[in-house]
Design a protein around this nucleic acid. Sequence first.
DNA 1: CGGGTAAGTCAACAATTGTTTACGTCATGG
DNA 2: CCATGACGTAAACAATTGTTGACTTACCCG
Lengths: 190, 190
Amino acid sequence: MTTPVRRRDAAATRKALLDAARRRFAADGYTSTSVRDIASDAGVNVALISRYFESKEGLFRACLRGTVDDLKQSVFENLPLTDPPRQLAEKLAGPHTKEPNQLLLLLRTSGDETAERIRRETLESISRRLATAAGSDSDDPRILLNAQVVLSAALGVLILRSAALQPLAAADQDQLAEPLRVMIAALLPG
Amino acid sequence: MTTPVRRRDAAATRKALLDAARRRFAADGYTSTSVRDIASDAGVNVALISRYFESKEGLFRACLRGTVDDLKQSVFENLPLTDPPRQLAEKLAGPHTKEPNQLLLLLRTSGDETAERIRRETLESISRRLATAAGSDSDDPRILLNAQVVLSAALGVLILRSAALQPLAAADQDQLAEPLRVMIAALLPG
DNA sequence: CGGGTAAGTCAACAATTGTTTACGTCATGG
DNA sequence: CCATGACGTAAACAATTGTTGACTTACCCG
């Protein structure tokens, strides 16, 4: 590992902070993560967080926006959805599982009302997308409720996997895809 | 509610601290809750937390044990389970919903390894109970995985309700029972 | 080459954290 | 009734938190 003579590059430093923060916040949550942890991970000084993101909450909001953007792009790339349960399983237990799953960020709360709004709107958007993707009869309000239960299951799986609950935590995406398929077939026909 | 001239009663203050802590920890999580918050809710001096529970982590462990005990007793009282989906919906959206749902404690992490073990063992126990209650073929390892997905959905519902995701958050137990019934029927036949 | 500015560091700040120690005070049994 | 011990409080502690201001250093353009 050649020591990379870290050159001065605001954009790169900003990104390093953002990446470190997204890992930490996703893995440990907002209050359990200190700005010094993040700066240390990124290999830069703490003061730069305030400089580039205004505050710890500003950094958290930036993380949320990043994750939301990644999510949008990811579903956009995979349109049309050929096999939703399988693609969901990929998101929950994909092969790149050494990193903490970014979707966990959608479950982390900071107390900041702006971040909370982004979070809520994103979850709402996802569940609506799920409901309409189910097609059939998207006017039926029960379909939206079913979609939110499916979303609950997906995010619950993330949490219980991060809690090392076996055998769920050790299941690969193939094993996980099966119950997801059954559940989705039951709750979101179409 | 007659104001009870709070007499000196170690057991009562201990319980007051425990109750306040269980509410706070369930609602806000471990790191977001300060011992002064808890003591203030209980109307008692902070130092008594260290006196009665050794430390903040000791208090958290006591909260976990309390919730686990309540849970055991609750399922014990309702044996045999006549209508699991309905009873689950009752737990997730029962009529006493002004208080933060105690099951959320099972998703709160403190960093303390002992608490983490209790948490994991409890979740494991619940999922095994679900799997065997499903009867049919409890040797099939896929049944346990299915049970853990059901558990994921239940806990995910709690989280998304606490995130005020509509319409899930506003659903009463009747509305919630329906998708749960469908999901359980699909994943845990028997 | 050299100065100006963006990039980064350092050190201190006030506030808050969990915990402890020394000190009051109530109640109760002899 | 009153001393003794349990119960409770107050104040301080060191450590950690997020944030800021003054300082240094590297880079780039003229």
